[in-house]
Write a protein that binds this DNA or RNA. Structure first.
Lengths: 343, 343
DNA sequence: GTAAAAACTTTACACGCGTAAAATTTCCAG
DNA sequence: CTGGAAATTTTACGCGTGTAAAGTTTTTAC
C-alpha cells in the first residue's frame, strides 16, 4: 500500500480505471455503484490509500456527514460516558461525530453553536446547560440545524427531547427510602444548574404528600458545576451546626451526594442502612463513581444507554426524513433503583 | 443585525464597500488591514453577521487554523480537566480546538489520527494510550503533522514531550510516607495501561533502596481503564484473604486508590494517618475526586496547569517557527505533596 | 436474442475562497 | 505640495470535489 502519493480524485480515478464522477459517487455511498466497480475501487484504495479532501467535499454538500455532540460539562464523567456511547453510534451510522463541551459557561455554549452552524452538520445532539442557556440563541440554532435535545430540556425547542423520567425515578427512591426507614429530606442547591433539579424537587414534594409525609427541602447556597465541593462544604456546615444529626437525605444528584458523604465521614457521622447508623444518604443518576463511595451510594440509575440510543435514532430519523417532524416528541426513560450500602 | 442573508464573501465585500481580497485578508489576520478598513468591515460584520465558509477557507490553506487534542480516555476526569485547560488556551491563541478521545482503544486512536491527518491541522496535542499505541502509526503521523506529546511518553516521537516528573513526585511521597509511618508497599496493575506506571514503579524501587527499606510491589491482575473497579475488586480480595491487614500502601494512581479505599471501607478496615488506623493509603495525580474520598486521599498533585500550558506553548512555537526543532525536548514538571487524611 | 434498465463515461460548470500580479488609490513624511 | 511607500482594488486563476446532462456501455429480464 501507499505506492505513491495521490493528489486528488482525478488521479485516483485514473489509477483505478474508473471515471471520477463514479468514484465520487462511491465515496458518497459505496452501495450506489455496481459491485464489480466497488471492488475495483476498493482494490485501488488498498494500494494507494487515497482519501478525498474533506474540505472540498463539504464545500458543495448542503448537509455534511458530520454530527455535533454538545454537552454542558465534560469533566463530569456522566456526560463523558454518554458522549462515548453516542460517538460510537454515530460512527456506526457512517457519520463523523464532533464533540464539544460548554464547560459550564453559557458564553461557550453560544460560541459552540455558532461554530457548529458554520460546520453545516447533518444534525446535532444537544444537552444544553439548561437554565443558563440562552434560549433565543438555541431556538435560532434549532431552526437552522436538525437538533435533538437530551438530558436537559428546554421547552418546545429542538426536534425532540430524550431524558429521564424524574417523576418515576424520584417516586421509586422516595418510596424505597420511606419503607426502609425514615422519610427522606431533599438536599439540593438553592439555584440549581440543571432544570432536572426542579423536576426532581417537584416530584419529591408530590410523592411525599401522596405517602402522607411532611416534605422537607434543604436548599444550600451554591451554583456552578462543582457539585461535590458544594455538597461537602454545605453538608459539613449543616452537620457542624447541628442542623442535621440523623435521618435520611435524598440528594438531587449523585455528585452532591458524594460531597455530602465525604462531609459525613469527616464529621464522624456513620452513614448506612445498618441500625447502628443514624444517617442514610441516597443520590440520583448512578454516577460512574457511585459504586466507590464509602459507603457505596444507593441511587437511581439513569438509563444512559437508552437515552443515548434513542437520541441518536431520533436524530437520524429526522435527518433521513428530511423534514421536521410534525410534533415534538418527548421520551422519558424510567430509572432503576440501585440498592447499595448508604441507604 | 441580520438584515438579510449573505451568500458569500463577494456579496459581503460589496455590502461593506471593500474589495473581496481585502476582506479575505482581514479574516486571515484582522491586523493586516488599515485600521479604518478594519472598522468598516467590522461595522458591516455587526449588521450582516456573515461568516466565511470554513470548508472553502481550508481548502486552499495548507495549514488550517485547527488544533487537534487527543486524549486516551475522556471519561477519566483527569483528562477532561486537562483538555478543558488546553481548549481554552487554543481558543485564546486564535485557533479552533477539536477534541478526540480514544476511549481506551488502540483502534480508535489509529482512526482518530487518520481523521486528524485529513483535517490538516496546524498541530496536534497528543496524550497517547501509551503501551497500547501503535508506534508505527503514531510515528508516521508525527512526520506529517506537528505533534506535541503530553502526559504519556512514546520514546523519540513528536516534537516534544511534556509530562510529570515521576522520579521527583514518587520520591516526594515515598519519603513523606516513610518519615510519617511505615514504609509503603506499591500497589499497581500487573499490566499497566500507562507507561507512567512503569516509571513510577522504578522510582519507588530506587527511593526505597536509597532510604534503606525493602521495597514490595503488589501487582494485581487487571487491564483496561476501569481502575477504580480493579482497585476495589483486587483490594477486597487481598483484604479478605489476609494478604493485607495493615501498613502503608502507595497506589500507582489515584483512581486505583479510590477503589482500594472503597474496598478497605467495605472490609471494615479503618484507613488514615491516625494511630487508631492500621492502614494508610496514598495515591498519585490529585484526581479531581481525591478530595472527596473517605478518608480524603493523600496524594501528589500533578501540575495540570503547567503541563497544559507548556504543551500548548511548545506546539505554537513549533507552528510559528515553521520548522521542526532540532532537538526533541522533554519537559517534566514537579509534583506537589497533598497531605490529606488517608496517609 | 433482444429490448429496456441500469450503470458508467464524458463533458462541463459550480462552489467559495486563497492568492498572485498589476494598476490604482491612500497615506505620510519632508 | 510632492514623492514614495503602503494599502487597496481589479483581474484572473487555482483548489478538489459535487453534480447535472448527454452519450455509451453493461447488465438484467423476458
Amino acid at each position: 500500500m501507499g505506492e505513491r502519493k495521490i493528489r486528488n480524485m482525478e488521479e485516483f480515478a485514473a489509477l483505478s480505471g474508473i471515471s471520477r464522477p463514479t468514484v465520487s459517487k462511491y465515496f458518497n455511498d459505496p452501495d450506489s455503484v455496481r459491485k464489480s466497480t466497488r471492488a475495483r475501487i476498493e482494490a485501488a484504495l488498498a494500494r494507494y490509500e487515497y482519501r478525498p479532501n474533506i474540505y472540498a467535499m463539504n464545500q458543495n454538500r448542503r448537509l455534511t456527514k458530520t454530527v455535533g455532540i454538545v454537552v454542558p460539562y465534560l469533566a463530569d464523567p456522566f456526560f463523558a460516558e454518554i458522549a462515548r456511547n453516542i460517538e460510537r453510534m454515530i460512527i456506526d451510522a457512517g457519520f463523523s461525530p464532533i464533540l464539544f463541551s460548554a464547560h459550564g459557561a453559557p458564553s461557550f455554549e453560544v460560541e459552540i453553536l455558532d461554530t457548529l452552524r458554520s460546520l453545516k452538520p447533518a444534525g446535532v445532539l444537544l444537552a444544553p446547560l439548561g437554565r443558563a442557556s440562552d434560549r433565543a440563541v438555541v431556538e435560532k440554532f434549532c431552526a437552522d440545524v436538525p437538533t435533538v435535545l437530551f438530558d436537559s430540556n428546554i421547552a418546545d425547542l429542538g426536534e425532540a427531547f430524550i431524558g429521564s423520567d424524574n417523576d418515576q425515578s424520584i417516586a421509586l427512591i422516595v418510596e424505597y427510602l420511606c419503607r426502609s426507614g425514615t422519610p427522606p429530606r431533599f438536599f439540593e442547591m438553592a439555584t440549581p444548574t440543571n432544570p432536572n433539579a426542579n423536576r426532581r424537587r417537584a416530584a419529591y414534594l408530590r410523592v411525599m404528600a401522596a405517602l402522607g409525609h411532611t416534605p422537607h427541602c434543604i436548599k444550600v447556597p451554591g451554583s456552578g458545576w462543582d457539585f461535590e465541593e458544594i455538597g461537602f462544604r454545605e453538608g459539613l456546615r449543616l452537620f457542624q451546626d447541628g442542623s442535621i444529626t440523623a435521618g435520611t437525605i435524598l440528594c438531587s444528584n449523585d455528585r452532591l451526594a458524594i460531597g455530602l458523604l465525604a462531609a459525613a465521614f469527616e464529621h464522624g457521622l456513620p452513614v448506612g442502612r445498618a441500625d447502628s447508623c443514624p444517617l442514610r444518604i441516597a443520590g440520583h443518576d448512578d454516577h460512574p463513581f457511585a459504586r466507590f463511595t464509602c459507603p457505596s451510594l444507593t441511587t437511581v440509575a439513569q438509563d444512559y444507554a437508552s437515552i443515548a440510543e434513542r437520541s441518536v435514532e431520533t436524530l437520524f430519523a429526522r435527518i433521513e426524513s428530511g423534514a421536521s417532524g410534525a410534533v415534538r416528541a418527548t421520551t422519558l426513560f424510567a430509572g432503576r433503583l440501585v440498592e447499595r450500602a448508604s441507604a
